[in-house]
Every structure is written in C-alpha cells, then in structure tokens.
Amino acid sequence: MLDDFFLISFVPILTGLFSALSCTLVGNILVLRKQAMLSDTISHVVLPGIVTSFLIFGNVGSYFMLVGAAVAGLAAVGTIAVLRTYTSMDNSAAMATTLSVFFAAGVLMIELTSGGNVHLDVEHALYGNLESLIWIDGESLMSVFDPVARQTIPVELTRAIIGFVLIVSVMLVYWRFLIVSTFDQTFAEISGVPVGIVSAGVALAATIAAVISFDAVGSIIVVAMFVCPPAAARVLTHSLRDQVWLSLLFSALSAVLGYAVAGYVPTLLGFETSISAAGTIATLSGMILACAIFYSLCKRSYDLLDGH
C-alpha cells in the first residue's frame, strides 16, 4: 500500500498541509478581529478572479491566477466597505451579498467558458482536487533531492509552500501592528499604526491563503481551515501564543489525518473507491472543534463543582 506513497500521496499531503496551515494562521487573526466571515467571503469571491485571469491568460496554473484572485478579493473587500459606508447594511449583510453575487458571477463565467478544452469545472472549484496531484517521478524520499525528479512536482505544492512562507514572514514582521490594531483600534491609530493598511493586509493575506488552498481543498471547504482550528484553540486557552500553536497543530492533524482517512479507510473497509480528501479534512477539523468545545464545557462544569 505504501509502495506508491511518493507517487500518489506525498504531494497531496504536503499541499493540503501547507494550505491548511496558511489558512489557519490568517484565521487566528480573523477570529480575533471577529471577521471570520471574511474568509468565507474571500474564498468565494476569488472564483470570478481566477476565471477572469484564466480567460485572459488561458492557463489555470499560472501565477496570473493569484493576481486575478487577489484583485477579486480586494475588490470584494472594497465592495463591502462601500456597502457599509453608503447604505444602512451592516457588516454581515454586506459580506453575504458580496459573497453570493461574486460567486454566482464566477459560476456563470465558468459555464460560459466551458466549451472546448477547458479544465476549469465547477466541481473542481468547489471541492478541490487534492487526489490529482500526482508526482510522476516521485519514487522515494530521495526523489526530493533529485533535481530532475523535482521538476515534475506539481506546481500546486510549490505555490502552497511559497504562500505559507510569505504569510508566516509577513505576520511575524507585522505582528505588533496586527495585535494592537485588533485589540484596540483607536489606540493603535493614535500610536501611529496604519490601521487601514493593516486591515487591507489581513484581507490580502486571507486572499493569498484562499488561493493557494483553492486547488488543494476547494473554495468552499477551505473556509473550514480558516475557522475551525483557531476556534477550537480559542475555547481551550486564554493565551494568544498557545492559541496560535494549538490551532496549527489541529490544522496539521486535520490535513494529514484527513487525507489518510479519505485515501485508506474506505479501501480497508472493502469499498471500491476512496472518499473526497478535502471533504474529510474539513469534516475532521469540525470534529476537532466539537471535541474542544465539549472538553471546555466539561472542564468548566468540573471547575464549578470543584468550587474554583
């Protein structure tokens, strides 16, 4: 069963892992800023951006896709800001309308382009396609150090790693600004923190995380990786540092275990086909959240009984 691990599973696991970690890192900030819905919005609105850059450049794997998605993401954030400023809509209504209209436009655009040899289909966009990331020259761990074999590593993995490194470094550099403007925006503004740029930066980071995860886990399920691991960590600790580390642990667990469960468990149980890795990863993250909530509730009632 593990003979073809590097051919079939190595790249999908790593791609899923780095995608999940990127989303979770940004998700920690979104949850603290009470903007978790933003991840939902962005992961949906990048669809028309990706389709547009596909229409212009004719290649779904290109880095132009990232640019298209980033433009769409920021356009959506701008739309939300306009709706909130010039209408009586509140934040959630502005996000919900923007999300659905942008996404619907993306679906229509995919359908309009679906003649000919177009590889972009709705199902792929929604559910991701982790299982398709086959590494043709992947034979063993040594292949990683073989420059020839390395050339056939799917670009999705490279993109996921670059995105992850980018998000980690930007967050480390801007950590103080992120935290102070999230905790107390007025104070941050007076302290000279460019709060507007920080907000836009958070939206941009969410866009990047959503786009690199787009192929891996799909535009809808990616939301789970933004919200579930940070939310689970949030109910377990009052320390920000612990929250971030715990959420990354939960995220990695979901990504790796989710892929393994999806790929191997159905076959072990005697089923003919495996189940969707993306769906399993997201479901697992939800189960971890449920366990975390259950644990914290039990702990609280135990503390109460114990007289703490």
């Binding site: 009470k34 935290i179 107390d184 600790t237 320390s239 920000l240």
Partner: peptide, 8 residues
Amino acid sequence: QIDWEFPA
C-alpha cells in the same frame, strides 16, 4: 469599547 475576552 474593548473585547476583554481577547487572549492577552
């Protein structure tokens, strides 16, 4: 004006 549940 402050969210005192903030992990700090």
